[in-house]
Amino acid sequence: MILRIENVTKDFKVSHGPLARATHFTALKDVSLSVGKGESFGLVGESGSGKTTLTRLILQLDRVSSGRILFDGTDLASLSARDLRHLRSRIQIVFQDPYASLNPRMTVHDIISEPMEIHQDTLGLNARQRTDRVVELLELVGLGGQHLFRFPHEFSGGQRQRIGIARALAVRPEFLILDEPTSALDVSVQAQVLNLLHELQAKLGLTYFFISHDLGVIRYVCDRVALIYRGEIVEQGETERIFEAPESDYARLLLSAMPEPDPDRSPFRPPAASAG
């Protein structure tokens, strides 16, 4: 197991002004899950379910209220600032919105080489080597080195997401958090990006932590899945098992709400009625 989350709870203090007493809001409640090396683990939840909080905890952007997060056997909370920085280069993230997650004032070269600059002490690349690596990464994600000095706004959504993936891969991570990486993209482009992610996983031996609300995508991409609802894991297991025989009410609800692109399976039409 490369990532093990043990009984993690996260409370936020909610202030209601200087006179009112602050209340607690529990974003995650006793969450446990583990991700094996080289697998694709899916986390499914709707807005406000706590999936963003969980990613922030894994990335150590927030601290757990109780419980432990172990990465490759070490408790993240026990690490010194220096070791944490080192560890950060092993966990990277691809964000949902390829429009907002790239700095509009930086060139593609600067965007992709930035993580290498930050983790200079771990990687030890000089400026020339970094540029070479950026070109290599651009080719890896199917873009090509001629885009080196362009700005994000000159790219389409799918191309930007490729840049985001190249940035995440720059420091040779083992573990990639994919936070709804295709939900802002057109289906045709989504297919390209999903295929790219599949190729990269095979080529680089990456572990994926794939967050999505699109069950079709999750089913296509993930080996195992956890469903999170209001901060609690309601069901987890092998993807096929959950899709074929969901045990929780929530899983059944989600599956029934999933719009399938098949007119015969519409809840609004009896089969073979109202056709042409």
């Binding site: 289906v187 719009p259 692109p261 098949d262 399976r265 519409s266 809840p267 609004f268």
Partner: peptide, 9 residues
Amino acid sequence: HNLGVVAQI
């Protein structure tokens, strides 16, 4: 852009 929605409704 959601073909599932189109197919349904």
